[in-house]
Design a protein around this nucleic acid. Structure first.
Lengths: 142, 142
DNA sequence: TCGCGAAGCGTGATATTATAACATCCTTAC
DNA sequence: GTAAGGATGTTATAATATCACGCTTCGCGA
């Protein structure tokens, strides 16, 4: 992610939070920045390390709280199968995103909206879908 | 799961392992049994507890190794978003299964085969898909 | 039969991921 | 001003998962 698009993404995020009546505080903003800067999924404890260069502050709850907030705002997604997090540049309030994760280079492509279930049980009502495809991207294909 | 269908599932599992040139050892069999008996996703450490009534044995690696084996044999699936495991009564070698998890009663319905991605990135080749739908089943709908 | 190698498992330690519980500070509404 | 709520700091611990090593067992070819 380029410097420019990072700046832009942060501005968008700021706006988004305002619209929701919430605040993108410095900690939250910093965490979002770190997630967006990464070129792939980021682990919570790596974020923790990255936050630490100020002494004292930055314990696990700091990071997890920020991540929870960012997820609820749709600015970050959790990759459940990796216990890791990716930044989200599309704005979307609904729960669904489809992730394509390259096992070679680690990059993640996000597509908005989960695919329709093929064989949904009768009467089932979906609230939230986790859809993660692992494989090889065009660059890494072999 | 009824007693009969449990027995039957274990027999099927046995056969399946044989076909693959692998062994359903007592530990593996016991873990599978525990997973199948449960009416919903089971946590690894709950299995550990359940295995313990023999003194000494049953440390985490025991359970995780058994689960890894059972997953590779397609007999158990991991629910990534819950860090939990469900038994699989369909036989299937491919990686894909679609899970419908009721957030109220905890039951899991499995459907064979992942849905086609809606907007796959150009050139991406999928190896394994994680598809988990959370919501409310017909019984718990409100 | 013997010895070898691979698979399975036991065991202790530890790594990794996540949350609980409570204290403090700051803003905002009244 | 002050009380209430939100955000954060801080300590501790819970929950999930793996590493590393050694022992046993089993199948197999010499």
């Amino acid at each position: 992610m380029t410097r420019d698009s990072l700046t832009h993404a942060l501005e968008t995020a700021e706006t988004r939070c305002h619209e929701r009546g919430e605040k993108l505080t410095p900690v939250r903003r910093r965490v979002l920045e770190l997630v967006l800067e990464a070129d792939g999924p980021v682990k919570a404890y790596d974020l923790l390390e990255a936050l630490k260069p100020g002494p004292g502050s930055a314990k696990p709850p700091t990071v997890y709280r920020a991540l929870d907030f960012l997820m609820s705002a749709g600015l970050v997604h959790k990759v459940e199968a990796l216990n890791a997090f990716v930044g989200c540049t599309h704005a979307h309030d609904d729960g669904g995103a489809e992730l394509f994760i390259c096992s070679d280079c680690g990059t993640v492509e996000e597509r908005h909206g989960a695919p329709d279930p093929v064989h949904m049980p009768d009467g089932f009502v979906i609230e939230r879908s986790v859809v993660e495809h692992f494989g090889h991207c065009a660059n890494c294909k072999h």
